[in-house]
Simulated assay, not measured.
Amino acid sequence: MFTQKDKESLLMLLDGGKIHMGEQVKIFEEAFARHMGVKNAVAVSSGAGGMHIALLAAAVGPKEEVIVPPLAPVAGPNAVFYQGAVNIFADVDAATGNVDPKDVLARINSGTKAIILHHYGGQPCDLQPVLDELKDKDVPVIVDATHSIGASYHQQSVAGLGDMVVFDFGPGNQIYTGEGGMITTNSDELAQWLRMFRDEGFVREKHLLSKDEGPWHNEMQDLGYPYRITDLQAVLGLSQLERLDETVARREEIAKRYNEAFGSMEEVEVPEEVPGVKSAWGFYPLLLKEEKLIANRPRLFVQLKMQGIEVQVKHYPVFLHPYYLWAGHPDVCTLEGSRAPKAEEFYQRVILLPINQTISDEEVSNIIAKTKGILTAF
């Protein structure tokens, strides 16, 4: 997982004696912004923290509505609740698990304050119709790009598509720093708000202070949160950023082998190839087709695990978590039927095969052979 250069970068920082948020964070932010082709990058303690302060920067407040994706980490919808706002779930495209832009647009009304989109599994969603519709409206688009570091949409990095785009550096992602994340934006004003909110509301730049008490002076100008990242995480992220293209290319190779191996099987469906979209392959979703397989997915999961295959299942439709059932929108939580039926159907069919840059060709062959054998046996 970690290279010799990663380890050397950490040791050099430790030798310097300072590991809190400092110069290395600034260097990492600037390098990330350059690599992604955007004006600003703001490092944060986690992707979840990034989603929270993105909503703060978007000025989302109590009882305002935010349209959110159902098949995504809970960080985005949770942040809506942090702000006392209301989650409005849009449904997904049944083939990809990505939010359906038509359903998003159908849910926009006068009470819509912001929209959160998500790139399921690292494959960019079709966000251009949403961006076009909102071009002249004061409704910011925040993108949860948790699994999408290095993905592109019509030859443009996903980092520049949306008012704010939030990345996560947690386990399984293309850059892994233990915890940590990054928010990209082409707005200097939003970047300024984000930096303040991630630093407990403090402003430290002299030209932004309301008064000058001396060279030591800084001010808390709003209510922020302790969402700072450390220089330790920054140097690790910077080292991995240098090989990001290689990391994504390796994941793409593995995905291609999976597609070739499982594409001809009647029992399953491989991820749909969407023209103009380059996935970062945060994970590899294999969709079960046979009713017997779907009904026996728990047994299938256990058998794959017993064969040493690190299979996963995610994301549970957010609105089905008990808290969301108890604290849902008062106007819709008592309605009969699903709030996003296609999302529920997709979740019931999906299993995720291992995909990361450290898996060898031999291991990929082993995963394919064992998975095929178990699917056929069922």
Rank of each mutant, 00 (worst) to 15 (best):
P73A: 13
S45P: 03
L244G: 01
V80A: 02
H154K: 14
M36F: 12
C125H: 02
F81N: 11
F169W: 05
V158C: 08
D222L: 14
F32C: 06
K372R: 15
Q4D: 12
Q4V: 13
Y176L: 09
T96F: 05
V318P: 01
P341H: 07
P140D: 08
W193C: 11
G162A: 07
N218V: 11
L134W: 05
G50N: 05
G181N: 03
A72H: 01
Q221F: 05
K305P: 00
Q357S: 13
Q357C: 11
I368T: 10
S365V: 04
L325R: 15
Q156W: 05
V364M: 11
S110P: 06
S110I: 08
L320T: 14
V274P: 00
D126G: 06
L161R: 03
I294L: 05
V350L: 09
L304R: 04
L335F: 12
S279R: 04
Q174K: 13
Q4Y: 06
G181W: 00
E189H: 10
E310R: 12
V235S: 01
V60R: 01
Y284L: 10
D212P: 01
F346D: 01
A90F: 03
E23W: 04
Y316T: 12
A31H: 09
T185Q: 01
M1Y: 07
Q4S: 13
W193G: 03
L131T: 11
M164A: 13
I309N: 02
E269V: 05
Y227N: 13
T376Q: 15
Y323N: 12
S157N: 10
R34S: 10
R243A: 05
K7S: 07
A377N: 11
G76T: 02
I108L: 08
E246N: 09
I108S: 09
F262G: 00
N40I: 04
M1P: 10
G37P: 08
S9Y: 05
I88R: 12
K137S: 12
V268H: 06
F81D: 11
A369P: 03
I368L: 12
R107C: 04
G373V: 08
L71C: 06
G328L: 09
K372M: 14
A327M: 12
P101V: 03
P70H: 02
A280S: 15
P285S: 10
G276K: 07
L161M: 15
L131K: 06
M220G: 09
F378P: 01
V270A: 07
L55C: 08
I142Y: 00
Q303G: 01
A59S: 10
T230N: 06
L134R: 04
S152Y: 02
A59P: 01
A261I: 03
V158L: 07
I19A: 12
Q24V: 03
Q156K: 15
G308H: 08
A85G: 14
N296G: 11
P275T: 11
G22D: 01
F346H: 06
A369R: 14
S338M: 12
F262M: 06
E266D: 15
L117M: 15
S210E: 15
K342G: 06
E260W: 04
W326M: 13
M21I: 08
V143T: 14
G172Y: 02
A54S: 15
S338Y: 06
L10T: 01
E65C: 09
